[in-house]
Nucleic acid binder design. Structure first.
Length: 508
RNA sequence: GGCCCGUUGGUCAAUCGGUUAAGACGCCUCCCUUUCACGGAGGAAUGAGGGGUUCGAUUCCCCUACGGGCUACCA
């Protein structure tokens, strides 16, 4: 086989948001292409006009870019490579479909949707609940194989609506060599005469992938496992069109499954179980429905793709935290799993936490600044950087930075007084009241001085310092969380510390 | 129903005929810390079932069971 530059494509259908399975397919395509110095191009499957959603194509590109994946551009009209939009290539597909009819590999079918419906009803039985338009039935239906030539010519001349269907051969084995699964064999009797060209002149996926992959010079085609059953149609098409030698290598990726029940992960599962299934927020312009994204929930793109790549693939080393470059380096298509993987949101969050810990404060800064400004706080950069190091290991999602940081800049709006009330007494109350006075005259305001003062005063009052630390914390941050209290006090300053103490003292 | 794909702990999974069957997430215990985390040390938990092949099967083959996908003028 002649060596060709590796070229893979991602073929999303712009009928809605991009869910996990889609992004992972894109990612695997991309990793493979880059590993082999090839290109990654886009092909947009937008021939189903009824389901097309405006804006979805751009959304898909935005998601990929967020993940750090940038599709390669290429000449379009010359037939080199993408991005291709099926809707723009209508005439092209018809040409090939007609060619197949001429060669006897396809035929015109004039059956109306109603007639097909009737046929299915008629032939339905217990042993065959869904009759197919296939070699057994096609001679009983209305097509250019069953009708005489004059009738067919007449129907065509009258512009009778028709489709072009592939003529599946009789009882023939079609073999497919899958990079992940090995050889898979199908018998043509089991697959129906798929529609290649619809009545509106648009191709179906089956014709479009083959034609586009050929013209885009695709060398490797990776797609979801749900395509496996129709792959014999594609293999046959490559052969019938005379392009057998150019057929890409196939790999059918395992599905991403629901965490709980069964079946593949769907948009609904996210709503139901409280996690995102799209990369970014997606608002359907038709319905106005909003689907939450990983980005908006506070995931770092690095963590997102890391988590996705490790769902159904691993390099065998036991290591799990990889950046895009390392992923590219270590990626091997043969190490992709055969079985579907259940999505685990807890593990996804763990990846994000690892990435937050791994990232330096500078990298985190823009995220945190954006978060703070959404709360109308815009402190100096170096101040934010200092606080980031104080709280970053307490954040699992980027959005966690807000509650972890806000009390450094604002008095807490909610004070969890319940947390201290049970063990609260007059002695403690007077401790804070008198300590306040001492704080006022503390010569130096740093965490060590504050802590020393706190402890010696506690000793003088006859209370264990430990019993006073939680109340102090709640006074400063509003709840039972955050970095060491004395560091917080040092950071927020004397006046703020004293103000918060007296405020909470009044509440108790 | 038919066809195809799959099946190692609750989840992600390593192993490519011989191991005390890794590791990670989650869970539990302890240490650190009188907050929440991070970190550290432990723990419970796995080869769907049945037949072969073999000196030896998680690993190879067959059957069964179970799970999934497809079965549209959707992709």
């Amino acid at each position: 086989m002649a060596t060709r530059n590796v070229r893979v494509r991602f073929a999303p259908s712009p009928t809605g948001g991009l869910h996990l399975g889609g992004v992972r397919t894109a990612l695997f395509n991309y990793l493979f292409a880059k590993k082999h110095g090839g290109s990654f191009v886009l092909r947009i499957e937008d021939t189903d006009q009824s389901r097309f959603v405006p804006g979805a194509e751009q959304y898909i590109i935005d998601c990929l870019n967020w993940c750090g994946i940038y599709p390669d551009e290429g000449p379009h009209a010359e037939g080199a490579y993408g991005p291709y939009r099926q809707s723009e290539r209508k005439a092209n597909y018809r040409k090939y479909a007609e060619q197949l009819v001429e060669k006897g590999f396809a035929y015109y079918a004039f059956d109306t949707p109603e007639e097909l419906e009737k046929m299915r009803e008629e032939f339905k039985s217990d042993t065959n609940p869904s009759p197919q338009y296939n070699s057994k039935l096609r001679m009983q239906l209305k097509n250019s194989l069953s009708l005489d030539k004059a009738t067919v010519d007449q129907l065509l001349a009258n512009n009778t609506p028709h489709v072009i269907r592939i003529k599946m051969p009789n009882n023939t084995e079609v073999k497919l060599n899958d990079l992940i699964r090995g050889e898979v064999t199908f018998n043509t009797d089991q697959v129906d005469d798929k529609v290649l060209l619809k009545a509106d002149g648009m191709p179906t996926y089956h014709l479009a992938v083959v034609v586009d992959d050929y013209e885009m010079q695709i060398t490797h085609a990776f797609r979801g496992e749900e395509w496996l059953p129709s792959s014999p149609v594609h293999v046959l098409l490559w052969e019938y069109l005379g392009w057998k030698e150019s057929m890409p290598a196939w790999a059918h990726l395992p599905l991403i499954l629901k965490p709980d029940g069964q079946g593949k992960l769907s948009k609904r599962d996210g709503d139901r179980l409280g996690f995102p299934v799209f990369a970014m927020d997606w608002k359907d312009p038709k319905t106005g429905e909003l689907t939450k994204g990983f980005k908006e929930m506070g995931f770092m793109p690095e963590a997102f793709i890391n988590m996705l790549a490790l769902l159904g693939w691993n390099d065998g080393s036991g290591e799990e935290v990889f950046d895009l470059a390392t992923l590219t380096n270590r990626f091997e298509i043969e190490r992709i799993h055969k079985g579907g993987a259940k999505f685990d949101f807890e593990k996804a969050k763990w990846f994000n936490q690892e990435w937050i810990k791994k990232s330096n404060n500078k990298k985190l800064l823009p995220y945190v600044v954006a978060l703070l400004s959404s709360a109308n706080v815009s402190p100096a950069e170096n101040e934010v950087l200092e606080i980031i190091s104080l709280v970053k290991e307490r954040c699992q999602l980027l959005n966690d930075f807000l509650p972890q940081m806000l009390y450094f800049f604002q008095d807490p709006a909610n004070i969890d007084t319940e947390a201290i009330r049970a063990k609260w007494d007059e002695k403690k109350s007077s401790f804070f009241a008198t300590w306040s006075v001492l704080l006022e005259v503390l010569p130096e305001w740093n965490s060590i001085e504050i802590e020393n003062s706190f402890k010696s005063h506690a000793a003088a009052a006859g209370i264990k310092p430990g019993e006073l630390q939680l109340p102090f914390r709640v006074m400063l941050v509003g709840g039972k969380f955050g970095p060491p209290v004395f560091e917080i006090a040092a950071k927020i300053g004397k006046a703020t510390t004293m103000r918060r103490i007296s405020h909470v003292l009044k509440m108790l």
